[in-house]
Design a protein around this nucleic acid. Structure first.
Lengths: 156, 156
DNA sequence: GTCTATAGGTTTCAAATTTAAACCATTATC
DNA sequence: GATAATGGTTTAAATTTGAAACCTATAGAC
């Protein structure tokens, strides 16, 4: 069809499938806010400044995808809470990866005075590293996507 | 303005800034293909099936952002090559994080027969882990975004 | 040299999406 | 019972996307 965003859901690629779920303009920011403790429609809306109909559509989609569940709000029968599922929480690694890249490449030195920190001791997380099965730290050119061997398939 | 996509570039958030650069529908897929060895306009276009005008606009933006450089094609003066910069290569961690989440949550068991592997020995990479400065492995609920302390600022 | 094919775009136009603002329904609060 | 707040939906304009047609420069065939 003409102006319709192409559908990536059938792609045999993990990246494309993930983007199909959270790859639009707002979803990851909504999820970021959820990690930051926000749970109500109005909280997301106020913090993000996103149009209410868009927020509504995104939340519905993310609930459909199993990223959020809708829970009753114990404080008020008028509101309800969008709570991250385990599936949604596991997006945390992606958020940290995005944050760290942005921190390194999109800010002037000293411009960003927030960091991703360890809740226990408030120390910033060290940069994520790609580590091989044998413990070697990999550089970006050291990995690729390849067909699994049968050995791998059975092993997992 | 009315129908205009909101600008996140001014946000004091690493995630928002990163999404401003690579957060649209196609950019990360183009970059994925670049990791996969593709370098020419026609290669990206054929593999992704993206409209040529969109690909053109995205490549231009990514060059402007310093993700790609344009190099002359030694094979042909008609074509040229889009080559990932170091900044672009450092997006690899994000791609792996996206892949692994999608692999785990968006495929039926056995449906995906590709994996992100270590080029050296073809073994799949283990899942990325969030590791604290002291080496503890962190769960999604163990980190948050917080203001840097002065100690952190001077240390880095 | 001329014809043709190819790479790498740009232009055009219709369809879909985004946004802002207005509107509506339900539930608290006074 | 009136009023306000929450969580949306509806509407209409502006922008973006996508498909196809078109254009330009180089390469190769003749």
């Amino acid at each position: 069809m003409k102006g319709k965003r192409t559908d990536l859901a059938g792609a045999g690629c993990g990246i494309a499938r993930t983007l199909q779920v959270v790859g639009d303009w707002w979803s990851l920011l909504i999820i970021r806010d959820a990690f930051n403790g926000r749970r109500r429609f109005s909280e997301f809306q106020k913090n993000l400044g996103v149009a209410r109909n868009i927020l509504s559509a995104r939340l519905r989609k993310l609930v459909d995808e199993g990223i959020f569940t809708v829970e009753p709000d114990p404080q008020s029968g008028l509101s309800h809470l969008y709570v991250l599922t385990a599936k949604g929480q596991e997006l945390g690694v992606i958020l940290v990866a995005l944050w760290q890249w942005g921190e390194q490449h999109c800010f002037a030195p000293g411009e960003l005075d927030y960091a991703v920190v360890d809740k226990l001791n408030r120390q910033p997380l060290p940069p994520l590293q790609l580590v091989a099965q044998d413990g070697r730290v990999l550089e970006p050119q050291d990995f690729c996507v390849a067909r699994r061997t049968d050995a791998d398939q059975t092993r997992s």
